[in-house]
Design a protein around this nucleic acid. Structure first.
Lengths: 337, 337
DNA sequence: TTAGGTTATGAAAGCGCTTTCATTTGGTTT
DNA sequence: AAACCAAATGAAAGCGCTTTCATAACCTAA
């Protein structure tokens, strides 16, 4: 593979000049430029990005930490971030943290060692302090889907409380009185926030919150199933169940059907996240959208503006308000006989 | 950020020695090693991977080209490849080609410029020749889900014909006689192969293939819906429909339901790929698994063995035979009245 | 023509490592 | 104690670029 030396020789100019035509950041006469360009493609020259990075202390790549490489949430996130950055000629290096402190730290260390110009992280296991320190060091860090004290302007989050409210509110408006709730793991902030929203909606509807109508799931389908069974066993008069994500909603739907209930006529179900398959469910799932694409876009744009000094159009927003996606899994409360 | 110079000074040894303890590829006395390690963590030293790569001409990272960053097919693929490689201490740099020749080439150029040690590609748009040339150059290339003449040993593929056969065979065994087929785009090799398998299964079952029972879709849900409508309009006696992927199967199910048909009692449906949501569908979809994880694993292991000379256990397989995943969308043909 | 000011170009010093080769150190053997 | 050999260490030359600083080339105005 040809190097800059060979190009400079073939073109009869110095290294510096070749470098200049590559980077276009300094004046080069048209004749010289042409000689260099000719030499380049005669030799099939491709700059060595590694060497460029070493010399310039710029890699033009930003690190992206996600929890998993699969799943529609992360798929959308990666997809959006990559799209925005590549349009600006920047590249993305993706790593997975698997919601595990050690692996998240390793992944970040890797990105650091690759000298990324910035980091976009969806970290669930490392502490706020760790993220703060990181961003106080040389390396700009932005955070998706998590609010970290002290770096609020670099956090892009969804208003989970509001989403939780909207989900339950939609159900309450249809007249439901006995509403089950299957939450995510309580130690997760988003699960807690969604639950808070649920409680606020209940209150507004004049309904009391009851512990026995709450089941703590783990965001996986099976716990939706288990949750529904548990709740329905205790409250056979329950007519609706609100789930803190779509996977659990799917599980709840399965369990409801197994209990011989018609959805939505006898049992209304709401999810959260609007993952891809929620519209494939039968009946298609009414849910709360999770504006992950918008968050990804903002994170990427923050990096472009602050790290690469490229101005983009439109304001940067940090907080996203999720919307209710109305589909077919909700119905008015059945008349009591 | 501390450099190797500072470490060497703090430890009172030469650069070379520090380098040796980092790489563990040469003997260093225990006392010296300890001094170096102490110095390293006193300074919080992290090696600069860029500089290492430049000097050693090894990046310890392999490039992965996928068509999209979202979707369960690619999610599983990325996930598996990353897992296998990271266990060996190698890293993955992921890029997206968007099934577009220009972008696939750009993505590959990027990976080349980052000096990846090898490439794992799922390329749909570039030509066989291009891939061949690439792999004949300095850079080892392996291919997933595509057979490229001249580099068969580096291609990891699924037997689509066999899968297509199994799907239709499962339906035919249940006594169905009028079987619709919604294919993928004919210009795609995999779509063609699946269709060939379908035809073979028909033939084996003593059924004639009819053009009017074939609808060419585009692998998206909407074309499954459109396809079903078109086929059913022409063949109201149709009792089963085989779809070349799960998305289209989902569309077909929706259309069938809209036509007032019960699935599977009045209409059997089969998909292909076993994407995540196929088990969330109602009824859950009988389908053909697409062993993408196995292919990803093999591709990664090929790289480990041939590029990094790490022997792994078990044979490398190039061809994967997909299996029928039996769920609830198939039923015996209803009795004629 | 010449001084003064631009603009284009080149020389060379890094960037932070790896790796080769030479040298030193230390342990054995006689 | 001398001679030898293996093991441990260091010096220094890259790896392929960028970037600073100095110089050369060219223009313009006087």
């Amino acid at each position: 593979m040809a190097t800059i030396y060979e190009v400079s020789e073939a073109a009869g100019v110095s290294l510096a000049t070749v470098s200049r035509v590559m980077n276009g950041n300094a004046k080069v006469s048209d004749r010289t430029r042409q000689k260099v360009l000719d030499a380049m493609d005669k030799l099939g020259y491709k700059p060595n990005a590694i060497a460029q990075s070493l010399a310039s202390n710029r890699t033009n790549s930003v690190g992206l930490l996600v929890s998993e490489l699969h799943g529609s949430f992360f798929g959308n996130m990666m997809s959006t971030v990559e799209q925005v950055l590549r349009q600006a000629g920047k590249h993305v290096i993706i790593t997975a943290g698997h919601t595990n402190e050690k692996r998240e730290k390793e992944a970040i260390a890797f990105l650091q060692s690759r000298r990324c110009d910035a980091l976009i992280v969806h970290a669930e296991a490392v502490s706020d302090e760790y993220l703060c320190q990181l961003s106080e060091a040389d390396l700009p860090v932005v955070v998706i889907n998590r609010k970290v004290e002290g770096m609020e302007d670099r956090c892009f989050i969804v208003d989970n409380e509001n989403g939780g409210f909207k989900a339950t509110d939609a159900v309450a408006r249809l007249g439901h009185k006995v509403i089950g709730y299957i939450s995510g793991p309580r130690f997760k902030k988003d699960a807690q926030d969604r639950l808070d929203g649920h409680k606020r909606a209940l209150q507004q509807a004049g309904l009391a919150f009851a512990d026995s109508l709450l089941y703590e799931g783990d965001y996986h389908e099976s716990s939706g199933q288990a949750g529904f069974k548990a709740l329905f066993a205790q409250h056979p008069q329950m007519t609706a169940v609100v789930c803190a994500n779509d996977e659990m909603a799917s599980g709840a739907m399965t369990a409801a059907r197994e209990a011989g209930l018609q959805i939505p006529q006898q049992m209304s179900v709401v999810g959260f996240d609007d993952v891809l398959f929620s519209r494939y469910l039968y009946p298609s799932l009414t849910t709360i959208d999770n504006p992950i694409r918008s968050m990804g876009e903002m994170a990427a744009r923050w990096v472009l503006e602050h790290v690469y000094k490229k101005r983009s159009q439109g304001e940067l927003r940090n907080l996203f308000v999720p919307q209710l996606i109305e589909r077919d899994s909700l119905a008015p409360v059945p008349y009591d006989d």
